[in-house]
Amino acid sequence: MNSGHDLGGMHGLGPINPEPQDEEPVFHADWERKAFSLTLATALLGRWNIDMGRHSRERQHPARYLMNTYYENWLTGTEVLLKESGLVTAEEMATGKPQGPAPNSIHVPGPDEALNAVKAGGPADIDAPVQAQYAVGDAVRVKNFHPLGHTRAPRYTRGRVGVIQRLHGIHVYPDTHTPDVTEGYPLYSVRFEGDELWGPDGDAKSSVYADLWEPYLEPA
């Protein structure tokens, strides 16, 4: 979806103002620790995946997404997913008072199991009998498409021509990924020249490499 999260090329957002790296804490307030760990711990319940997690943040009003801090966006997404998955009712969320226990079918990881899960990670490549349509060196154009759902084709690449640099393998397709649906497509590293992306306002001595799934691409 074309929303407030898709920021490449946007103007007017001000200076970066980095904190001195040796002084920057991992968390800036205790509520950030909670927003972070609640998001991770509830993701480990297995009712949604990372792509649905991203989409839950993207669906906010764009102005709100941009005004929120990072962990406010995480918290908002987690609240949305808890409600949509049925694990928490809207009334429970509004009142903070539980109306009933968690479903018996849910497995809640303890600390050791959770640590093992994050240490193991969750690979996104899958073994699927899919033939890659493009080869290294092929010119491709990102399709001019504007889906209302989740996608990982940034707006600034759409309609632009790049060159395939590498095939990463067959990766889970974020646009359709749900707990019940896992499609795999070839994932490519595609290089776009700065002036192809930004015209005369770009830097011809710069390029952008984006990872793009085959359905996003067409021959150029």
């Binding site: 968390f27 620790r33 909670k34 972070f36 760990s37 609640l38 991770l40 711990a41 509830t42 480990l44 319940l45 808890l82 694990l87 928490v88 429970e92 539980p98 009933g100 226990p101 968690a102 849910i106 809640v108 990881p109 303890g110 600390p111 050791d112 959770a114 640590l115 994050v118």
Partner: peptide
Amino acid sequence: KGLVDPATLDALVDR
């Protein structure tokens, strides 16, 4: 509701 274990939250933050 029993959907998260507080010890899990602490362990994730600590890591």
